[in-house]
Nucleic acid binder design. Structure first.
Lengths: 207, 207
DNA sequence: GGCCGCTCTAAGCGCCCGCTCACTGTCGGC
DNA sequence: GCCGACAGTGAGCGGGCGCTTAGAGCGGCC
């Protein structure tokens, strides 16, 4: 995997788990609409229209518009967590694992920027309970990256002023890729992933 | 200056140029509302209410709700640009100037996160002409930072794989502070500024 | 003192929002 | 061949939206 599964216009990575077909089409339409205009500026009529259905059809598969965002957000965060956990669990030095984590995480944010934008920037549009659940997933994301950095510090590979602050900065850097990345721009997702892995290693490596 | 001019609840740095008084109160109310809920989820009734006025009063000072966002965005970007230009123009090595630029820029995003959040994340809610103007200001921001990095590369202080990509990463890192920074969290704006200046110098410094 | 100009309000227009409901078409099981 | 189950539709509801308008209050100027 990496970027092969993404298409130019609207990426849709692994929504295969969403069934039935109509529910998946609605969800993909919602991802595209939310990414383009934001949650609040997107109408249920727009989502249904993109999926080739009437506005009422949305409510057969989802209780509310917010449930759509919630489902998108949860699936996206689980995918992000899986990517990071895979990198963290591999064999190798802390530096190799961190580089792997950053490059694959960035690749996901760049290649799947439509999804990533919704997942990372529309959190505040969720209600309190849904948001609390997603915040829990984010804490796990943070813990995985912090774990790698702590390993590197323990082994003497890394030297950082503030583990928690550095972890936050690394994640912030990766996540923000979804905001500025443009598939028509000068870099491929792979190139940004490599550049960022290099930058992050410089941030943590002992001199 | 730095963080002294900010208050705990809703920061308002230098809206002094906005007159008359009622227009300024409306603008500050709009900044707070946009930062909390986003542009599209904010109603003109909410803005007017926060300013202690009737909904209609808004339209005496501003043609539309979008004009409010435009004004906020322009003033904010001009302030950001001024901060970076001041740091870029000072005496010293490229490393000193870059550290100064990053720490003061981050301090502004952390201390004035209410304003910064609107300025940095609501750009897409502007119409085409207004957005084009703001994008122009952003290009100037990018040019200032890229200039410092190029100076450092020319003098041999810095060693980077990709000047343009590194510039983008540095700015992305600073800007994203507005998204996650919390005044009640473990760091002050000054501390984050210092930490980030250190991280950025590591990103660009020759080994 | 009378009038103009400016700021601001109460009321409300027209529109489109999220969502609902009565109904239709279709398809598998007997 | 009929029937229940259910995905999907067309029409439309209550409400809140951005914005407008008619007019009130009031300070400055001759």
């Amino acid at each position: 995997m990496s970027t092969a599964e993404e298409t130019a216009g609207g990426d849709q990575a692994g929504w295969g788990e969403v069934t039935p077909d109509a529910a998946r089409r609605l969800l993909i339409a919602a991802v595209e609409a939310f990414a383009e205009r934001g949650y609040h500026a997107t109408t249920t009529r727009d989502i249904a229209g993109r999926a080739g259905m009437s506005p009422a059809a949305l409510y057969i598969h989802y209780k509310t518009k917010e449930e759509l965002l919630h489902r998108i957000s949860r699936i996206g965060h689980e995918k992000a967590l899986e990517i990071l956990r895979t990198a963290a669990a591999r064999e190798g030095t802390a530096a190799e694992r961190l580089a792997d984590a950053v490059s694959s995480f960035v690749r996901w944010h760049a290649g799947g920027r439509t999804t990533a934008r919704v997942v990372q920037y529309e959190l505040d549009s969720l209600g309190p309970e849904a948001r609390a659940e997603i915040v829990g997933l984010r804490r796990q994301v943070d813990a995985v990256v912090r774990g790698i950095i702590e390993d590197g510090v323990a082994s003497g590979e890394f030297e950082v002023r503030d583990v928690r602050g550095t972890t936050l900065a690394v994640l912030s850097l990766c996540v923000d890729v979804a905001r500025w990345f443009n598939i028509d721009g000068p870099w491929t997702p792979d190139e940004v992933g490599e550049l960022y892995a290099d930058l992050v290693l410089r941030m943590v490596t002992a001199k």
